[in-house]
Nucleic acid binder design. Sequence first.
DNA 1: CATGAATGAGTATTCATTCAT
DNA 2: AATGAATGAATACTCATTCAT
Lengths: 193, 193, 193, 193
Amino acid sequence: MAKNKKQDILKAAANLFSSQGYNNSTTLQIAKEARVTEPLLYYHFQGKEEIFTTIIQEAFQEYVRQIHSLPGNTKTEFEKIASLIRLHMHIGETDSPDFKLIMSNCPSKLVSKKHACRDIQQKQQEIVSSYIRDCLEAGNAKGEFEAQPVDHMTLILLSLINEFLYMKIMSKKQFQPDEQSVMEFCKRSLLPS
Amino acid sequence: MAKNKKQDILKAAANLFSSQGYNNSTTLQIAKEARVTEPLLYYHFQGKEEIFTTIIQEAFQEYVRQIHSLPGNTKTEFEKIASLIRLHMHIGETDSPDFKLIMSNCPSKLVSKKHACRDIQQKQQEIVSSYIRDCLEAGNAKGEFEAQPVDHMTLILLSLINEFLYMKIMSKKQFQPDEQSVMEFCKRSLLPS
Amino acid sequence: MAKNKKQDILKAAANLFSSQGYNNSTTLQIAKEARVTEPLLYYHFQGKEEIFTTIIQEAFQEYVRQIHSLPGNTKTEFEKIASLIRLHMHIGETDSPDFKLIMSNCPSKLVSKKHACRDIQQKQQEIVSSYIRDCLEAGNAKGEFEAQPVDHMTLILLSLINEFLYMKIMSKKQFQPDEQSVMEFCKRSLLPS
Amino acid sequence: MAKNKKQDILKAAANLFSSQGYNNSTTLQIAKEARVTEPLLYYHFQGKEEIFTTIIQEAFQEYVRQIHSLPGNTKTEFEKIASLIRLHMHIGETDSPDFKLIMSNCPSKLVSKKHACRDIQQKQQEIVSSYIRDCLEAGNAKGEFEAQPVDHMTLILLSLINEFLYMKIMSKKQFQPDEQSVMEFCKRSLLPS
DNA sequence: CATGAATGAGTATTCATTCAT
DNA sequence: AATGAATGAATACTCATTCAT
C-alpha cells in the first residue's frame, strides 16, 4: 500500500506525458491522477524531470529486453530481420504507453540539457542498426542475400522500421502499410530473385 | 528596413519555435528576437497561436509549390519518384527552418483544438501519397514497373520518404542514408530485374 | 460629414459606458463602434476620461434644461412636486442613455481624482433638493400643506425621487411602483387629510 | 496569527473592492494588502472572481441573519416596519464594509455572466419586499393601518428603504434624513390620522 | 483630419518547487 | 511517508496612449 504510490505516480505521469506531452502535463495533474499530493512527488523524485527520466529509462529497459528476446536461432537471417520489423510494427499493443515517450521527440526543454532522453534515442537507433547489420553480414556470408553494401541497406531498413514504429505510435492507421506486404517488399529487396 | 516588422516577428518566431518548440518559446522571447515590443505581436496577430498558424500555413504553401514544380515530363515514371524522394532528402537546405514546423509533431496544446497543424500534416501525407500512387499506376500501365499492388507500394514508399524527411529535419546525419544508395534500392524494388 | 465624427465618438462611448461601464469599455471598442480609428479619439479629446466627462456634462446640461422647463405657473405647489417626480420616473425614455451615466455610480477610477462626475452628482442632488424645498415652503406659506418640518420632508421626498430614478435607470421594472399610487401616497403625506 | 491567511485575503479584498471597485482592485494589491504573495490567492480561491463571490455571499448570509433576528413579537406591525427601516439606516456601522458590495452595483464584468451578484441583489429585494408585505397585510387585518393597496405601499416603502441604505453605504450624510423624521413620516402615511 | 504602427506599464493566472509539521 | 500552505519566476495577453506621416 505504501510502495505502490511511487508506482502510481510513474503510471499517472506516463499516461499524462504520452497523451498531452511533457510540457502540458503539470505536477498537479500528475499528483491528482495518482491520487497523491504534490509534495509526495518531491519525496520520491527530485522533480518533474526525474519522473520523466525514470519512465523512459524503465521503458527503454523493457524495450531492450524485447529486442534481446527475439528468436536467435532462426533458419535464415531474413527471418530475424522480419521478426525485428514485426516487433516494431506492433509495439505498445500489449504494453504500457511508455514506449511512445522513448520514441517521440524529447521534450524540447530537456533536449538542450543533454538529457537522458537524447541518449536513449541514440542508443535505440544503434541497437536496431547493429541488429540489422549483424543479420545482413551473416546473410551475406551465407549467400542468403544478394550482396548489397551492408551500410546502405542497414540505414534503409532502419528508416523503414523507424517509420513503421512512428506510425504505430502516432496511431496513423491509414498510412500504416500492412505487415504482409512489408515482408514481401523486404524479401524482394534482399533476396536474390 | 524597419517597415517589415511583421515579417521580423514571423521570422523570429519560426526560428524559436523550430529550435525550442512552441511551448518553450515565449512571446517575450519572440519579441526580443524580432527587436520589437511584445504588444506589437498582438497588433499584428491575434496571439501566439496565430503566429504559429501563419508560419506553418505559409511554409505549407511553399512546400506545395515545390511539389508542384517537380518535373512533370520525365521519360520514366521512376524519375518522377526519384525527384520526389530527392526533394524530401534535401528539404530545408536552402530554405527557412519553417519546414521543420510542418513536419514535426504539432504542439500538444494545439492538437486538441483541431488546429490547422493537424490538417496540414494530413494534407501533406495525402499529397505525397497521391503523387506516388499516380506514378506507380502510370508506370504499371506502361509496363515500366514490375507489377506490384499499388496501394502497398505507395505506403512503403511514403514511409521511406517520411523518414528521410524526418532525419533531414532532425539533422540526424549519422542515420541518413545517402541519396545514391536510396535510388538504387528503390530501383531494385520497383523495376524488373 | 466631418464634424459628425466627434459626435459619433461621443455617442458610441455613451452607449458603451452605460451598458458595460467605464472600465470595461476600451478605447478600441469606442473607436470601432464609432467607425473611427483610435488616434482620432485623441485628436478630439485628451483621452478616455475627457470623453466620459464630456458625455456626462452634456447630459447634465440637458437634465438641468428639463428641470427648468417644468411648469412654473401651476395652481398648487403639489402639482409642481408631482411633475418633478413624474420627470424622474420617466427619465431616459425618450432620450439618450447618457442619463444613466450621470446617475449611476461614478467610475471608481475617477472618484479618487475629484472628477467632475462627483460634482455633477452633488449638483444634481442640490437642484432637486432646492426645487422640493421651494415648493414645500411656498406650499406651507399658502397653507396648502399640513405644516411639516421642511428640511425633513425635503430629504424624504428626495430619497423617493432618487430611488424611482435609480429603478428606472437600472430597469428594475418589477420593483418600480406605478405613478398613480406614488402620487396618491405623496398627496396623503403632504396634504391635510 | 499567521494561520488565517485565507481570512486576511478576504478582508483585504473586501476593503479594496468596496473602496476602489472590483475592476480597479488588482490581485497584486489584494495580495500586498493581505501581506501575502499573489499565488496564495489562487491556492485558496479559483481566482479574483471567486474571492469576490465569497465575500458577497458571506455578507449576504450575515444580512439575512440580521433580518431574521429582527424582533418578531412586537405589539404593533408598525414597530416591525420601523425596526426594518432602522436596520437599513444603520447598516454597516458596526460591521465590515462588505455590505457595501452586496448593495452597490455589481461589477459590470460579472453582470453579463449571470453572476451570483445579481441573484443576491434580487433576493435581497425580495426578502425586504415580503417582510414589508407581511407586516402590511397583518396590520390591515388588525385594522392597525388605514387600508391601502398592499402592493403599492410595499413598493414605496421598499424604495425608501433602498435609498436610505444607499445613502448610508455611500456615506452621503448631507442627504440622509434623520431617523426620527422618517418614522414620523411613515407613521403618518400608514396609520389612520 | 486621419491613420497604421508601435509601446510602457500593467494584469490575472500558472507552475514547479519548498517548508513546516 | 505524507501533506497543507506558501512562493519566485514566469507567461500570454491588454490597454490607454503616442508617433510619424
